Amino acid sequence: MSQQARQAVLGVAVIGTGRMGADHVRRINDVISGARVAAVVDIDADRAKGVAAGIEGCVPCTDPAAAMARPDVDAVLIATPGPAHEAALLTAFGHGLPVLCEKPLTPDPAAALRVLAAEQRLGRRLVQVGFMRRYDADYLRLKSLLAQGAYGRTLMLRHKHRNAATPPGFTDAMTVHDSLVHEIDVTRWLLEEEITAVRVLRPVATGRAPEGLSDPQLVLFETAAGQLADTELFLNCGFGYQVGCEAVCEDGTARIGDDHGVFVNAAGRWGGEITPGFVERFEDAYDRQVQRWVDAARRGEVRGPGVWDGYAAAAVCEAGVRAQATGERVAVELIERPALYR
């Protein structure tokens, strides 16, 4: 990217205009600064046209390659389903375009390794993966406390991940790939260690769980440094969306996720509100994530979680699905970390 282009408004092609893609289009157009939506892509031409309508200079497309070849496109935001990510990423590499790719990087570690190898051949990082919790104010504060050693060494993490209900067709494997993947990344980020093994326990299922879905589940991670992290996954709790984390350290504990917004005393009752979903809970984190990606791209840089983090998460997910199926402790298999990602 030329020096002139780095200083100009970043033209972004948004690939995929479903729930997340359309929300990112709104975010770039209405919330953040330094970028504009130059193109939107969806296999549904009418959907693409509808999302592009009213955005000055935004071109609707059905082909990601055609959008990325446009001269006014400086960067790419990928918000398609996971199986389409690899092809879009490799196309972006061919144009030398920086990418913000929604999680997962790819659905499996084999595909992630192909992306990793392609980025290494370029000799520079182009991809930021959309693990938005790294941009949440509470998680950032917790990360800072742990990095400073405020309470001594971190020994354990205790995660909770609750959702009101799962959509139709949700499977056990999806609880890992679509939900637990966030705790996987947060654990690696907070502890600065790789996850080396996974075990999944299944308590008695809630009556709200669809037939064939184990819910809740308790997942245990081991790290290379011997720390443990457990996650309560309860995806049909019925009462709302709750995410939290407690770090258990040598000299104290630190917990996030207890904020219920405005606390009310009225009509003989007291209490607050529970966030209905992840978009509302992490709206500020999404805004901060995209703004920082845009700022870095305009400087010709890539920051934040990258291809290695996407690959490592995919490898842990693969082990997690095997642990679900077998009930056994399953080791995570990772290649040696390449120099580009150290």
Rank of each mutant, 00 (worst) to 15 (best):
M1D: 07
Q3P: 15
A5D: 15
R6D: 13
D23M: 13
R27T: 14
R27F: 00
R36K: 13
R36S: 14
A39S: 04
V40W: 02
D46Y: 05
R47F: 04
A48Q: 09
I55V: 03
T62W: 00
P64N: 00
A69F: 01
D72I: 02
D74I: 01
D74M: 05
A75S: 02
A75L: 09
G96F: 03
C101H: 01
K103S: 01
P104C: 09
L105F: 11
D108Q: 11
P109T: 07
L113R: 14
R114A: 09
V115Q: 07
L122N: 07
L126P: 11
G130V: 07
R134P: 10
D138R: 12
K143F: 14
K143T: 03
S144V: 14
S144R: 15
R153Q: 15
L155R: 14
L157M: 10
H159M: 11
H161E: 12
N163S: 06
T166E: 03
M174R: 07
D185N: 12
W189T: 11
E192D: 15
A197D: 11
R202K: 15
R202C: 10
E211W: 08
G212S: 08
F221H: 02
G226L: 02
V248K: 06
C249A: 11
E250N: 07
R269M: 14
R269V: 15
W270P: 00
R281G: 09
D284M: 06
Y286E: 12
V290D: 02
Q291F: 00
A297E: 04
G300W: 09
V302K: 00
V302N: 01
W308F: 06
D309W: 09
Y311P: 13
A313M: 15
A313S: 15
A314C: 04
A323C: 08
A325W: 04
T326H: 14
V332F: 06
I335W: 07
P338Y: 04
